[in-house]
């Protein structure tokens, strides 16, 4: 693939998708971790300009999105009791930033 850097819109879309799929984890700790990771990774790389670097970050993000999609479904299939820090209602689908 040629090193065409992703557009701003594509990057934003990827970020939204990552947040959305992280939010679907039924497991509290995994949900919080992947939310934190998505936010931190995008914050860290906010000012990356280099096309090749952007391209590789974008590809990595897409791979991660695939994992989140598959694993959040598994997390919804195999569920466990809620943790003592988790409210029983409104789990998972908190408004995201």
């Amino acid at each position: 693939m040629p090193a065409v850097s992703p557009s701003r819109r594509q990057v934003l879309r990827l970020y939204k998708q990552l947040i959305k799929n992280a939010n679907q984890f039924n497991d509290y700790n995994f949900r919080e971790y992947f939310l934190r990771r998505a936010r931190n990774t995008f914050k860290e790389n906010k000012s990356v300009q280099d096309a090749a670097k952007l391209q590789s970050l974008f590809a990595e993000g897409q791979r991660d999105l695939g994992i989140l999609k598959r694993q959040s479904i598994i997390s919804q299939m195999y569920t466990f009791d809620k943790l003592v820090v988790e409210p029983l209602h409104k789990h998972g689908f908190k408004p995201s930033t």
Partner: peptide
């Protein structure tokens, strides 16, 4: 804790005994 409306599963703080399997590892 007295608070109902929250779950009952304990918080896991025994990371030296073992750690949860990362979903990326399971994948």
């Amino acid at each position: 804790q007295e608070n109902t409306g929250f779950g009952t599963r304990p918080i896991y703080l025994d990371m030296q005994a073992t750690t949860p399997t990362d979903p990326r590892v399971l994948d």
